[in-house]
């Protein structure tokens, strides 16, 4: 699974980042890199089955405490 993720991201880097780098679109490159690193981390965490906390739980807790059930 993790290999698959890595392969896919390698392909993505080839076809997403390299053209941006060549065209010198730095803001795009930076934004993309930030998002890319984020998504790669999440993907790897998911592929090794780490449980990532969901934000919907706290939100729903807050709302039920405010408005009641």
């Amino acid at each position: 699974m993790i290999f698959l993720v890595l392969i896919v991201y390698a392909v993505l880097i080839l076809y997403e980042f390299i053209p941006l780098y060549k065209q010198k679109q730095w803001p795009e490159f930076a934004a993309n890199a930030v998002l890319g690193v984020l998504s790669l981390t999440v993907a790897i965490l998911l592929s090794v089955e780490v449980k990532i906390p969901s934000p919907s739980k706290p939100i729903s807790n807050v709302i039920t405490s405010v408005f009641g059930k």
Binding site: L12, E16, L20, Q25, P27, E28, F29, A31, N32, L35, G36, L38, S39, V42, A43
Partner: peptide, 14 residues
Amino acid sequence: LTDYKPIVIQTGLL
């Protein structure tokens, strides 16, 4: 950014 298109893939994956 001048164009939103380059970030679509990463945002979508996220």
